[in-house]
């Protein structure tokens, strides 16, 4: 596990030299087991930073806010933002660069390798701890997680509480960075698409019943959209109003905004939402699993993204988030793309 002091040192150095506006990292939160995103502006505040197996958030999501904020400022601070990224998060940066949503000089990337481990799943962990507060949590040498609570130390095998996506991870160290902490130990899961295959193996009716039950739960809080670093569109199909509206937009244009789906949280409309969300992330999702983590109703949203990841790999040999210079999945094609389904 990467040493926290090394991380603080890197953050402090760039803040001291005023090379960055601020550093986005993790700090202790007051609300539960997981940390909160931290926005460190002063070198002395780096002491707040933490690094442990609960640092689950994909912080690249906040680059969207930063970009919007910058667009509103009259004289924006042009310095980059420092950001702490894990392997999966760094791939999100690659996609954002590939899509030219951000420029390389907008970010100073402090890469942190997950080495042989990853981050823990909050729900799995809280079941093990039964509401006890964590005092310290770390990996040992042998794939165990040592959790210290007021009742002492507990050793839990990592595989029991790691987040599902970490168990299927194909990139456990950052692929892009300005400074890298930790070792580039390559880890290859036995089958990165295990979860998807479980659903694929069900019958048609079983698959529908499964999704029907899951999607009926949705209350359309849009947390899955809001937390996603790729969901940066100014205008989203689920919004009731077109954000491209200006004072010059005519009444007719406004009236013609197509309502693709209704606000009613019923199955048919929830289906449209989740289908579109998933397909819009085809070839872009890097499986940081944030959408599924934040869902208050535990809808297994990751299964949708993962399915598209698998199809992109199988059909088009496409991997997202490794090469900022490759053309994106759906803006490119090959002559030999499969067409056996076409009549």
């Amino acid at each position: 596990m990467v040493n926290l002091e090394d991380l603080k040192k890197e953050a402090k150095a760039v803040l001291k030299d005023e090379k960055v506006k601020y550093v986005i990292g993790y700090e202790k939160s007051s609300n539960g087991l997981m940390p909160a995103p931290a926005f460190i502006k002063k070198p002395e505040d780096v002491e707040k930073l933490i690094w442990d197996p609960t640092c689950i958030h994909n912080l690249t999501r906040f680059l969207t806010d930063e970009k919007q904020k910058k667009a509103r400022e009259k004289q924006p601070d042009e310095r980059p933002v420092g950001i702490i990224v894990k392997g999966c998060d760094s791939r999100a940066l690659v996609v954002l660069l590939q899509e030219k949503f951000i420029n390389r000089e907008d970010v100073y990337i402090i890469g942190v390798s997950c080495e042989s481990a990853g981050v823990v799943d909050e729900k799995k962990l809280s079941k093990k701890l039964k509401d006890k507060k964590i005092e310290n949590i770390e990996f040992d040498e042998k794939d165990n997680i040592i959790v210290t609570t007021k009742d002492g130390k507990t050793k839990i095998p990592a595989s029991e509480i790691l987040a599902e996506r970490c168990l299927e991870c194909r990139a456990n160290f950052p692929v892009i960075y300005d400074v890298l902490l930790g070792e580039k130990t390559k880890r290859q899961p036995e089958n990165p698409f295990q979860s998807v295959e479980k659903i694929e193996s069900l019958s048609e009716q079983e698959r529908w019943d499964f999704w029907k039950e899951q999607l009926s739960k949705c209350i359309r809080c849009y947390a899955c959209r809001s937390v996603c670093p790729m969901c940066y569109c100014d205008e989203c199909v689920v919004d009731t109003i077109n954000f491209a509206v200006t004072a010059d937009t005519t009444a007719e244009e406004k009236a013609q905004k197509i309502k693709w789906l209704e606000k009613s949280p019923v199955l048919s409309e929830n289906f449209v939402y989740h289908f579109i969300r998933a397909i819009h992330l085809a070839g872009r999702c890097i499986d940081c699993g944030e959408c599924e983590r934040v869902c208050p109703l535990d809808i297994p949203i990751r299964f949708l993204n993962k399915k598209l990841e698998k199809d992109a790999k199988e059909l088009f040999d496409y991997d997202s988030g490794f090469d900022p210079d490759q053309p994106s999945l759906i803006s490119s094609f090959r002559d030999e793309d499969p067409e056996d389904f076409i009549r």
Partner: peptide, 13 residues
């Protein structure tokens, strides 16, 4: 609000 992601969890729940 720096870390707020603009979802509707807090108010819907």
């Amino acid at each position: 609000s720096m870390s707020c992601i603009q979802c509707g969890i807090c108010t819907y729940l």
